[in-house]
Amino acid sequence: MNYVELLRARKVLTVYGAVLAAVALIAMLSSHGQTPHMDINGHQTTSIPISVLILVAGYCAAIIASMLGTSLNRENGGHLELAWTKPISRSRYAAGIALVDILAIIIAMAAALLAIVAVLATFGLATFISADGALAATLLGFGVALSWYAVSQAASASLRSKGRAVSGFAWPVAFALIALSFAPLQTMLHEVVLALNFLNPLAYLSTVAVTTNDHGTSAASGGVLPLTLSARIIGVYLLAAVGLIAALAQWRRLEA
């Protein structure tokens, strides 16, 4: 594991953990004296699918992925002489960085899920949580965060600076692409937006509802991309793999 990245991820997770704890605490304090009540869109609901909670946690993890997704770019910001004169290959060095970052993303996702469940528990709603679509949602939620990380790396790995700008700019671009996919555009323009959304990790998650039928099969409904849930999961991991390979290829070819 890369020591520099370990320290960097620790800092990011510390801040993230503090924010998460603060939000959860505020939510818990506001629950005082309330009785459990489930009413979604005017309908009495008997369960909260954990898949929804997992996908929210996936969004939270994507925020951390975005913060860590410029780690190769940061090495390029004046540290390559130190990084590349270690007795390991550049690929191994980069893999060490990615390993730490991916572990941090997993921790971030787990922490977010725990915080959400803890808040629901203080509202007395924990018993309503159902395990519907948990595996598929976990795969998709983590996949989105991972692909966000990979796309950020690919977009910033060869830049000398401006990594943070890329990371920050990516969010409005991602949301804009999703919004445009619902806009009444000409067919050709719509196709272009659709194609771009295949490179947009959030598009794989947007408006997804993961449900499990009586036979135990998970399915996704709605969304920007015309894909089944399985295809979305495969697609998001493909995007992550392509992004990571592209980032590594660029970074290895840099000059200090």
Binding site: G78, H79, L80
Partner: peptide, 10 residues
């Protein structure tokens, strides 16, 4: 061991 001209420290 290599000492770069410009500091590469974090």
């Amino acid at each position: 061991a290599y000492l770069p001209e410009r500091s590469a420290l974090y």
